[in-house]
Structure formats: C-alpha cells, structure tokens
Computed example of a mutant assay.
Amino acid sequence: MSHWQFLPVPFKFQLSDLTLFSVSLPLQVRAERLLDDTAPVRVPMPPVGELLAGSQGFVIHALPLAEPSPPVRRAGNYLCYVPQQYEHCYIDLGIGFERYQGKFSAKTRATILRKVRKYAEHCGGAIAWQTFRTPDELARFFRLAGTLSKTTYQERLLDAGLPDSDKFRQQALVLAGQDRLRAYLLYSGERPVAYLFCPVEDEVLSYAYVGYDPAYIHLSVGTVLQWLAIEQLFGEARFRYFDFTEGQSEHKRLFATDRRLCGKVFLVKRSLRNCAVIHCHRMMNRLSSWLGAAMARLGLKARVKRVLRFVR
C-alpha cells in the first residue's frame, strides 16, 4: 500500500470535457495499486488516527469496491464522496501476445488490424513510430511530444496534456535511468501525431499521459499506437501489467484483459465549506451527465465533441 501524500486536490467543475473552474482542498492522497491485491471494500471509512494538521481529509484513488457505493453519505464526522465508480481496466502482460490476441472477437481483431494496415498505407507501406526508454532519448521525445501535446484536446480542454516543467522532466530522466519508463511516438512523415508516456512502478506500466493530433482522428492514430506499443511490451516480457488507471472509456475496455470495480473515494471533514464544495461538485457532475445524455438522444454529442477537440 502506498503512503499518504499531503496535497491541494482540485475539484474540477466541468461540462462534458470543458473545465469551467476548480476549487482545491488540502487532502491526504494515496492510490491503491494493482500489486497491492487490496480486498474490495463494502463501506469506505476514514482511516483512524492518520489525519494531519491542516488536512481536510483523505482521497483514495482506485479503491476496489465490493459493490456500487452511494455517491454521497455521512461517515461519522466525514462526508464520503465517490464521484467516480468505474471498471478499472488493465492488461495482464504475462499471458503472451498470442493469447492476448485471442481475447478479441474475430471481428474486433480484424477491425484493429485493418486500422493498422490503413495507417501503414498512409505512411507508404511501413509505419513510422519510435520507443523512448533511456535518458539520452528523452530530449527528443519531450521536444516532439511537447509540441504535439499543445494541439491535443487533452491539454486544451482537460488540462491533462504532457507536463512541461523542469521538475517533471528531471523525474522522467531518473525513471529512464532505472529502466522504469516507456514513451512512444507515432509519426506521419516527420510529424508526430500521437504519443504515449508510461512510467513504471513495481513492474506495472501506467497509462499516464496520452494524446493525438485531432487532424489525424480519421486514421485512428491513438488505436494504432496503442496496438504497436502493446505488441512490443509483450515481446519484451519485462513487465507484469499495463494499468489504464482511473476512469473508463471504450478504448480502455477494448484493450484490457481484466476489469475490477473501483472508485475515487473522498473522505472529507464535515464543515460548511467542505459540504458546499462536495454537493455543488456533485450537482455539476449530474448536470453534465444530463446534458450529455440529452445531446446523445438528439444525435449531437459526437458532433459537439469533435468541435471541442478543435477549439483553441
């Protein structure tokens, strides 16, 4: 089990992928890891005797749940808030690539391989892509992926692009020096069009940062790079899991071999301000979900998302 970190944790108020504003609370943070083999929890409760001075409570990422949890409930002097409950997706890299391919239906596997062949044709016959793993290689990755990241909707709308700070790059150099990093770029000619950045902890790669050029969405460049990277990782036989981390999506479900019910669980001290933040955040999430469902019924959701990906 990982130790607590004491951090300002932002509550992002979003409509769909668009962040309107955020409010932060000082909380103790930890994440349950795949290798921890944590037993699923039926009723999340605040840890006893671990609250630090100035802390407003706790947040536990990827906590395995025995059953769906109420979004908000009282837990003694705390509020238990579970804004995300999802199927935590991951790939068991120990099963071998042949068996991995067998997890897909014949139709799905054919669709993926068709996308790979289509991109190869776009590249003139051979796909141009690159793996970065050593400190010497990272300078080129950060230069190219950093420029690409600024074009992606992950950075423009979600504030989830590749970090551009000396501290982040120094940490990456340390990981690369310990063979605890894999990063990937997919090219169209000389132009980078998709990237993956995966740090490693205890033989588990994390799907930490990902992005693609929205001008190449019609060529499924994210899917193509994911497939190539997974095939190479099976060939390395170096790691145990590929962890798709928090949240769920069709992409994660498609490539995963395993899933487990998890939640992002906040256990926050009950106060007027904290209660206001949590209940307003929940109301905004419900409004966002309602608007998303309404747009889907009207056939507008996919169209609006495509427009937002090009918003600058």
Rank of each mutant, 00 (worst) to 15 (best):
I91E: 03
T147W: 09
T245S: 01
L228T: 05
F197H: 06
G76L: 11
G247S: 02
R273G: 01
L79Q: 06
V59N: 07
L113S: 11
F242H: 03
I112H: 07
L186F: 10
E190W: 03
I91D: 03
A145M: 08
F239L: 03
N285V: 11
V9S: 10
Y153P: 09
F132T: 05
D17V: 12
S188I: 10
Y195I: 05
M295G: 05
V311K: 04
L52R: 15
Y119H: 11
R169I: 12
K12L: 09
N77L: 07
G54M: 13
S105H: 12
L79P: 00
Q130Y: 00
K150H: 14
L63K: 07
E98G: 11
W227E: 01
L225W: 01
A39H: 14
E246A: 05
S289E: 15
G235I: 05
V43M: 11
T223A: 06
Q85R: 08
N274F: 06
G177P: 13
I60C: 13
G54L: 13
R156G: 07
Q84R: 08
K103W: 10
A31I: 07
S188K: 08
P70C: 13
A183I: 13
A126K: 13
R191D: 08
T134N: 02
L261V: 02
S55V: 08
A110V: 10
A293V: 10
L18Y: 15
L308R: 02
S22N: 11
L298S: 07
R270C: 01
W129Q: 06
P135I: 05
R169K: 15
Y119D: 09
V224Q: 03
A237R: 15
R312Q: 01
L20K: 07
V23L: 12
A39R: 15
Q85G: 03
D36Q: 11
L138R: 03
A229F: 02
A294N: 11
L144I: 09
A75S: 13
E137D: 00
L65N: 06
A145Y: 03
E98Y: 11
L157F: 12
Y184L: 04
V200P: 02
F97V: 15
A53C: 12
L113G: 07
R240S: 00
I278R: 02
N274D: 09
L185E: 09
F132C: 05
L148I: 12
I60G: 06
L233G: 04
A294I: 06
V204A: 04
P46L: 10
E87W: 03
L157W: 08
V41Q: 14
F142M: 03
L205P: 02
V9D: 10
L228W: 06
D213W: 04
D243H: 00
D36P: 05
G102S: 13
M284I: 13
M284D: 10
F6C: 06
V193T: 07
S55R: 08
F97D: 14
L15R: 09
R259N: 00
T223F: 04
Y216W: 14
G222N: 02
W4L: 06
L138F: 01
I230R: 02
G57E: 10
F141N: 04
